[in-house]
């Protein structure tokens, strides 16, 4: 499997909000590695401040990292400018969370879907109109939706438009940042089904960013769990959800309210607040909240290391950034 996307050692910091000469910095990403295979879906899950959206923006070329590399199909994206960046962007398209905010309210649906065709001058204007109609059909909308404005659509329809617009330039990778978080469950199911169908039919890969573990579990081939700018665990979906190893992953899975009254939580899986990424904890970022911490956790930064023997060669290795490696759950 040649990787479509290969992220190595990505570091991003921002100036913290506020002013002053010696402003602190937000440590959004602190050395992140991630691999995504062609036609696969990699789920990226984490809570506020985990840096998952920043990672998505780096892959889209919308955020310049301080350090590290983003290889897309063998091409380094970091530092690309001008036409080279434009050429790569055709192949990496975003789908955003808020389907209303991601469509220009002044534009018709057709114009939004056409935006990348216009940018790259694909075909004649009538060709583009035809293509818009094909794309709308592909995402389950009728051609006359092209003349409507976003406010005239439901949330689910807007997200279909967002997906059609992302597909227009024929991307190999779609970076979807919380694409179904703003939608009701029944609509969410429709959009997830649509994305799965598009992946089957078009072979497009997804980097799927979400805070919702059950959604990530449903859509992903591989999953990475992020906490305060670091990936703490990466594995095959089945492997990760069946045998979570990192104490944070375990707590996160435990905290998800599952719709089964017989599987009620008897204790709070994780106490304390998520620390601020402005002043992240030393050593392992998770150590202040970790039930299993040992003395060295506050000093040493754990690296992602393979665990377990479950993986054969064609599986994604199960990687965990925790020196207190736990035995897999039965």
């Amino acid at each position: 499997m040649t990787a479509l996307l290969d992220v190595r050692g990505l570091v991003v910091t921002f100036p913290a909000p506020g002013s002053g000469l010696r402003r602190k910095r937000v440590h959004a990403l602190s050395g992140v590695d991630l691999t995504l295979g062609r036609g696969h879906t990699h789920g990226l899950v984490g809570e506020s401040g985990s840096g998952k959206s920043t990672l998505a923006r780096c892959v889209l070329g919308l955020q310049r990292p301080d350090d590290g590399s983003v290889l897309f199909d063998g091409t380094e994206i970091v530092g690309l400018r001008g036409s080279a960046l434009r050429d790569i962007r055709r192949r990496i398209q975003p789908v955003f969370q808020d389907p209303l905010g991601s469509l220009d309210p002044r534009w018709t649906v057709g114009r939004s879907v056409r935006e990348s065709l216009d940018a790259y001058g694909v075909g004649s204007p009538p060709d583009r109109e035809r293509r818009v109609r094909e794309l709308l059909d592909l995402v389950g909308l009728s051609p006359d939706h092209a003349d409507r404005h976003p406010v005239q659509l439901s949330g689910g329809q807007r997200q279909r438009v967002g997906i059609a617009a992302a597909l227009a330039s024929g991307p190999d990778l779609i970076v979807a940042d919380e694409p179904v978080s703003a939608l009701d469950v029944s609509v969410q199911a429709q959009i997830l089904n649509l994305m799965a169908r598009l992946q089957r039919d078009l072979g497009v890969a997804f980097l799927f960013v979400s805070h919702d573990l059950s959604v990530v579990e449903h859509v992903s081939d591989e999953v990475s769990v992020m906490y305060l700018g670091k990936i703490v665990e990466t594995a095959d979906r089945a492997d990760l959800f069946a045998n979570p190893v990192h104490p944070y992953t375990r707590a996160l899975l435990d905290a998800v309210p599952i719709p089964e009254p017989d599987a009620r939580l008897v204790h709070v899986p994780l106490s304390g607040d998520i620390p601020s990424p402005i002043d992240p904890p030393s050593g392992c970022r998770f150590h202040p909240r970790c039930p299993l911490r040992v003395d060295s956790c506050s000093r040493e930064r754990p690296a992602l290391t393979p665990v377990g023997t479950l993986n054969s060669a064609d599986h994604t290795p199960h990687l965990v950034a925790c020196p207190v490696v736990l035995p897999a759950r039965p």
């Binding site: 469950v185 029944s186 199911a189 429709q190 169908r197 959604v215 579990e217 449903h218 979906r237 089945a238």
Partner: peptide
């Protein structure tokens, strides 16, 4: 239908059931 459309209930066993219409 609401319970069925929960992704957690379907560990990628194909499409999620949906409620059609408005």
């Amino acid at each position: 239908a609401l319970l069925d459309s929960q992704p957690a209930a379907h560990h990628r066993s194909g499409d999620l059931p949906v409620i059609l219409g408005q």
